[in-house]
Design a binder for these strands. Structure first.
Lengths: 125, 125
DNA sequence: ATTTATTTACGAATCTTTTCGTAGAATGTT
DNA sequence: AACATTCTACGAAAAGATTCGTAAATAAAT
């Protein structure tokens, strides 16, 4: 749980976060919509994730049901922290500037960011 | 060049970006200030990077001098894009909100971000 | 000139992650 | 019942990244 998930593990987590508790078959089918993955490959990854504590599973029926055991926000925080650390010398604003500079934030998104900044500044004007 | 640098490769690039063209010895010495790395390890990584096109090198003297062959901004863009894609479903604002939510942005940094947003808002329409 | 140090090149050991083949158990189908 | 399908478990192959040992060449030191 302390460690960060790998690429593949993150893919699985994203499925579990959005679809909720799922079987290997369900996760694998969804993954195969974007890229080709063997069933046992997905199974193996999810077994490893269970071992690492990223997911928990219900083994009461033959077909196990997996659930995310880590919070979406926690993992994303960790990923952002890591990128901030490794590439942006720990500076949040550098990362933010780089991200905004990509240019694919809509007016509404910019508005929401401005509101967040206001809140962070203390709520004045 | 098309691919993304690994962790270690990024470390080397950061050195070359900030210190400019450097020898393996210089890079390795700097890396060893934060963690222990063998000289030949750093050498090998930089050789691989040369092969991948991440760095170029001047072999005119026995001690080769390496220079970054990729732009700092380009790589950081790619890293941000990748995180945005893999973890935030391609949404810049989600990534930004998460980063700002970490709480380690100073008033001055927030100010600079606000100015960037103003520029982004004013630039179009 | 001989020895010592530094550097590159090469290859291999190690480690992590990803992938998949195979076997055996459980379930479903005919 | 016999056969086919689905699932888990296990192990190992394949691929990528990291680490380092060793040898050969060059340079520096004595």
């Amino acid at each position: 749980m302390s460690n960060k998930p790998t690429e593949s593990e993150l893919e699985v987590l994203k499925v579990l976060w959005t679809k909720g508790p799922s079987t290997v078959r369900e996760v694998n089918d969804l993954l195969n919509e974007s890229r080709e993955v063997g069933y046992t490959t997905t199974l193996k990854i999810m077994q490893i994730m269970a071992q690492k504590g990223f997911v928990s599973r219900d083994e009461s029926s033959r077909t196990h049901v997996y659930s995310a055991a880590v919070q979406e926000g926690d993992i994303k925080n960790a990923l952002v922290d890591r990128l901030m650390e490794t590439a942006f010398s720990g500076s949040a604003s550098q990362l933010v500037m780089q991200a905004l500079g990509r240019g694919n934030a809509s007016k509404e998104e910019l508005q929401r960011i401005k509101e967040l900044i206001k809140r962070l500044e203390g709520g004045e004007s």
